[in-house]
Amino acid sequence: MATTTTRLSKQARREQLLDTAVAMVRGQGTDGLTLVTLAEAAKVSRPIVYDHFGTRPGLLLALYRRLDERHRAAIAQALQDAAPTAAEVARVISTAYFACATDMPELTAISAALKGNPEMEATQHELMGRYTDLMAAALSPYSRLSRNALRLRCVGLLGAAEAIAGDVTRERVTSDEAVVALTDLIMGGLATGQGH
């Protein structure tokens, strides 16, 4: 068993382990990622990995959360840098959504590996709620809908985005076509909300 010679803080070690896990999933999918293979790849003892994640599902959930947090941070930054118009905000949201689908296939792989896991379902609902809130907050300056009505519309738009992402994955449409379609849906949702 290989052990590390560098002593890291607990948080730094966790980040190192998650970085290694992302690289493993990217290179070989989730099937080869276990607590034992992660310990070997990260050159740490098995108890260190078990201490951080406990179980394989615990590792996969931590990895899923981390990737989601990075995705939301990138969207938040892109929104902050966007021109303050409804069309530009809608385009940025759409572009970021499909960039995640194509640039972060690990999220999909991890989700598939944990399908049916109740903790994963709860995590996905929680993270989707955060994404919905981020989207609604970005669009609220351009809508006269109540906060709850706009949030509900964003839930529907994200459902449409997920369906469109499926077509991107199956190569029925390009990412560019998907961005245009979702941007149009967002703008249409805002337009129908005017005056309501």
Score class of each variant (00 low, 15 high):
residue 158 L to I: 07
residue 69 E to A: 13
residue 157 L to V: 06
residue 79 L to K: 12
residue 37 T to E: 03
residue 146 S to Q: 11
residue 160 A to V: 12
residue 56 R to H: 12
residue 183 T to I: 00
residue 24 M to D: 01
residue 28 Q to G: 13
residue 8 L to K: 09
residue 66 R to M: 14
residue 89 V to L: 00
residue 116 G to N: 11
residue 4 T to Q: 10
residue 36 V to Y: 13
residue 76 A to Y: 06
residue 196 H to D: 09
residue 131 Y to G: 10
residue 139 L to E: 07
residue 14 R to H: 04
residue 167 D to Q: 08
residue 62 A to R: 13
residue 29 G to D: 01
residue 45 S to F: 09
residue 39 A to S: 04
residue 119 E to W: 12
residue 68 D to V: 07
residue 59 L to V: 03
residue 5 T to C: 04
residue 162 E to K: 10
residue 111 S to R: 15
residue 12 A to Y: 05
residue 185 L to Q: 13
residue 169 T to M: 01
residue 74 A to K: 02
residue 28 Q to A: 15
residue 48 I to D: 10
residue 25 V to T: 00
residue 183 T to V: 00
residue 95 T to H: 07
residue 114 L to S: 09
residue 61 L to M: 09
residue 72 R to G: 03
residue 69 E to C: 13
residue 138 A to P: 00
residue 17 L to Q: 04
residue 26 R to Q: 04
residue 66 R to D: 08
residue 136 A to K: 10
residue 192 T to M: 15
residue 160 A to L: 11
residue 74 A to D: 07
residue 21 A to S: 00
residue 122 A to G: 05
residue 65 R to I: 01
residue 192 T to I: 14
residue 61 L to N: 10
residue 140 S to Q: 11
residue 31 D to V: 03
residue 175 S to I: 02
residue 194 Q to M: 15
residue 56 R to N: 13
residue 83 A to Y: 03
residue 146 S to F: 04
residue 183 T to M: 03
residue 129 G to Y: 00
residue 93 I to C: 01
residue 91 R to Q: 06
residue 83 A to W: 06
residue 103 D to I: 05
residue 12 A to K: 06
residue 18 L to S: 01
residue 116 G to V: 14
residue 111 S to K: 15
residue 57 P to W: 12
residue 28 Q to H: 12
residue 60 L to G: 10
residue 159 G to T: 15
residue 23 A to I: 01
residue 65 R to G: 04
residue 142 Y to V: 12
residue 75 I to Q: 09
residue 130 R to Q: 11
residue 169 T to Q: 05
residue 134 L to Q: 10
residue 54 G to M: 12
residue 127 L to Q: 08
residue 88 E to D: 05
residue 97 Y to W: 04
residue 27 G to L: 08
residue 122 A to H: 15
residue 2 A to T: 11
residue 26 R to F: 01
residue 102 T to N: 07
residue 48 I to L: 13
residue 100 C to A: 05
residue 119 E to H: 14
residue 85 T to G: 02
residue 96 A to C: 02
residue 117 N to Q: 15
residue 123 T to C: 12
residue 110 I to T: 14
residue 78 A to P: 15
residue 64 Y to P: 09
residue 154 C to K: 08
residue 83 A to F: 05
residue 12 A to F: 04
residue 131 Y to S: 08
residue 44 V to D: 01
residue 67 L to N: 05
residue 50 Y to W: 13
residue 21 A to V: 00
residue 60 L to D: 13
residue 45 S to N: 05
residue 1 M to D: 03
residue 53 F to G: 11
residue 33 L to T: 09
residue 109 A to Q: 15
residue 170 R to E: 13
residue 9 S to R: 10
residue 175 S to C: 06
residue 120 M to D: 14
residue 158 L to W: 06
